[in-house]
Design a protein around this nucleic acid. Structure first.
Length: 648
RNA sequence: GCCGCAGUAGCUCAGUGGUAGAGCGCACCCUUGGUAAGGGUGAGGUCGGGAGUUCAAUCCUCCCCUGCGGCACCA
């Protein structure tokens, strides 16, 4: 037998016989390590303890101390244990795939009857039995023919298809957890007893298409979460409760911001409180745009299909547009219009009015563009995914040579806005040429380089998403991370030479000839509706003072204080602070609780003492302590705080 | 759009084959109280919409709408 040399993390190397398993290596080090071992890393690859090592390599043996590997294995093995439990209980159920995902895993099953919540409890109990049985995990590499035959014989048609899809040259690995068999890449634990029986939970059942293909029948997906120990599972549960508390649909109702109703699905009825957030944000964005050299326009909602045919949207998105047919007098056919699903074709119409010179470029044309899209019913979600929304949209008409500078300028613009709005943690992704595309390789090379250079020049790293660009040009996506770690793609910049071509936009160059401009579609917030949803969830409803719809409540303690309460409110209002009086016949405890629940950032309490001394007692949301402040002082301070960040 | 679940007072929810209940909120009265719910009285419902079964439907069946959790989609 040939000898191989394995190098350990501490730099020491030892000789072994070729073909030794990682488990045997662990055993050679110590009995206790061999018991505790869960997997290995061999030449950077996560390695099953049962797999042989045939050549010189670096090796590290993992135990449950190694979080990354431990969580991966726990979740992955639990996916198999769950599938086994399901087939133990219902032998007719067909298994498909079950990958690790997020904080757990899912597994898709084909079963005629739906799984119920009671079923989940039963499956969990069975899983615990399997864990307690400490069943050994075994693996073998099989030939494609044997694997296909095996699954055909066992009436597992999905597995047959999965085996057929494994690329040539890749091992086809069969795994057993006890007697139960599954196709799997591995690696896995040594035995089911290494799984934590008290740190996992089946969370919910949902439909899912096999391999994500909506043309195929729907399977039933069971989701689970798992951690190393019970404490981490509890922490996850607390985190889920926290996320539920931040839900913008719940807070929107509690703070009286907006509502939705079935006569207008996917559209928002903004209440005074919510609309105050909206207009405050829009006013801020308008000031920013104006400062950054944009001109603002406004374009029609109902536009004849001809324009959408010319732009190409009719062909691709007809199904997703609201169609408005009008029966004009004596017309043989109805006139067919569509509510605009986007603003760009209309912006080109504005651009096309009058001759444009190269001296007009770059032309930055902005619109708070109200759009309507007939989104699939299942896609709707609160105010985050709606059918009627307003984009902070703009199109920059420019020459090829101006793309890089305009992109850099835009990134700096966006960066300042995100900072003002309290988002400091965001990333850029650059999506490059897809397989199906138009335009020359040279022009793709040039534009992709321009976007990359612009990011660097603006001082930002970016990640490349290979092949994810539009068919006509590359794009940048700006994704921000919120207070509880969720990512939201908001900003975008998309290079588009196609639409100016289709809609025949031209400018006269320095050479006196007509030229084609390029359009940069760009947005910072995305849509006001969605962004406000994100803001609500980011702050758990406790919006920064300048954005808070209700900023101050001045609450009386005794009714003799009422005149002074009104005076305080008037002084604050005059200084640009949104303040209101609460002189109801209620105790101060009651008022404090009510306004705290409603997330009013500042409560000013007024009793006899304040009236006599011309002060207020100020209490901030979430703080227990109060402090007494002179009236003039509180007006000055709160007025400063109420000023938008760009005006301070 | 697909799979599953749900829809009862403004909100959160209980309930029944014989046309409904709680808490909070709301209105009125008492209370003038010093920082997260003072007390009393009262109003408020086509039980999501339509059809069917039944002597009788909020309850059972079917269809539709809307919402929720995913999947698919997101110009």
């Amino acid at each position: 037998m040939a000898q191989i040399s394995l190098t350990f993390p501490d730099g020491n190397a030892r000789e072994y016989e070729a073909g030794i398993t990682a488990a045997a290596v662990a055993e050679s080090i110590s009995k206790s390590l061999s018991k505790k071992a869960i997997s290995a890393t061999v030449n950077g690859e996560h390695w099953d303890l049962q797999w042989p090592i045939n050549a010189d390599a670096s090796i590290a043996i993992h135990t449950m101390q190694d979080d990354d590997q431990a969580l991966e294995l726990i979740r992955h093995d639990l996916a198999h244990v769950m599938a086994r439990a399901v087939q133990d209980i219902w032998p007719d159920v067909k298994v498909t795939i079950g990958p690790v995902r997020d904080n757990g895993w899912f597994y898709d099953f084909d079963r005629a009857e739906p799984f119920t919540p009671e079923d989940l409890g039963q499956i969990e109990a069975k899983m615990k039995d399997i864990i307690n049985a400490r069943d050994a995990v075994k693996t073998e590499v099989w030939s494609r023919e044997d694997a296909i035959k095996f699954y055909q014989d066992n009436n597992e048609p999905y597995k047959v298809e999965l085996v057929e899809r494994i690329p040539a040259g890749e091992d086809i690995r069969m795994y057993w957890h006890g007697d139960w068999q599954d196709l799997c890449r591995g690696p896995h634990l040594q035995h089911t007893g290494q799984l934590p029986a008290d740190a996992f939970k089946l969370t919910h059942v949902a439909g899912a298409y096999f391999l994500g293909d909506s043309d195929r029948p729907m399977l039933q997906r069971i989701y689970g979460v798992a951690f190393k120990n019970r404490k981490d599972l509890k922490a996850w549960e607390v985190m889920m409760e926290e996320a539920a508390k931040r839900d913008h649909r719940k807070l929107g109702r509690e703070m009286n911001l907006f509502h939705m109703q079935e006569e207008a699905p996917g559209q928002v009825f903004w209440h005074p409180n919510g609309w105050r957030i909206y207009t405050t944000l829009q006013d801020y964005m308008r000031r920013q745009q104006t400062r950054d050299g944009y001109v603002e326009v406004n374009t029609p909602q109902v536009v004849n299909r001809k324009l959408w045919e010319d732009s190409g949207h009719w062909e691709n998105y007809q199904e997703n547009m609201f169609i408005v047919e009008v029966d004009e007098d004596h017309a043989r056919e109805k006139t067919v219009n569509a509510l605009k699903p986007m603003n760009c074709p209309c912006h080109v119409q504005v651009f096309n009015q009058g001759l444009k010179s190269y001296r007009d470029l770059p032309l930055r044309m902005a619109e708070f563009g109200s759009c309507n899209r007939y989104e699939p019913s299942g896609a709707l979600h609160g105010i985050m995914r709606v059918r009627g929304f307003t984009q902070d949209d703009a199109h920059i008409f420019c020459t090829d040579d101006q793309i890089e500078f305009e992109t850099k300028k835009f990134i700096e613009f966006l960066s300042g806005i995100y900072a003002d709005l309290g988002f400091h943690n965001w990333t850029i992704k650059l999506s490059t040429r897809p397989e199906k595309r138009i335009g020359s390789e040279e022009s793709w090379d040039r534009v992709e380089a321009a976007l990359g250079n612009a990011c660097r020049a603006a001082g930002h790293d970016f990640e490349i998403q290979e092949g994810e660009g539009a068919f006509y040009g590359p794009k940048l996506e700006f994704t921000l991370t919120d207070a509880i770690g969720r990512d939201w793609q908001c900003g975008t910049l998309q290079v588009d030479p196609n639409l100016p071509e289709r809609l025949d936009a031209t400018y006269i160059g320095a050479d006196g000839d007509k030229h084609r401009p390029v359009m940069l579609h760009r947005a910072v917030l995305g849509s006001f509706e969605r962004f406000i949803g994100i803001l609500i969830e980011e702050h758990a409803g406790k919006l920064p003072f300048w954005l808070a719809p209700r900023q101050v409540v001045v609450a009386s303690i005794i009714s003799d204080a009422d005149p002074y309460v009104h005076e305080v409110v008037a002084a604050l209002n005059a200084a640009g602070v949104r303040a209101e009086a609460d002189i109801r016949n209620e105790k101060i405890n009651y008022k404090v609780r009510e306004h705290s629940v409603a997330k009013v950032p500042v409560i000013l309490a007024i009793g006899q003492k304040e009236v006599d001394e011309r002060t207020v007692t100020l209490r901030r949301l979430g703080e227990k302590q109060t402090r007494v402040v002179e009236l003039d002082q509180v007006v000055t301070d709160l007025a400063a705080e109420a000023t938008a960040p760009d005006l301070r």
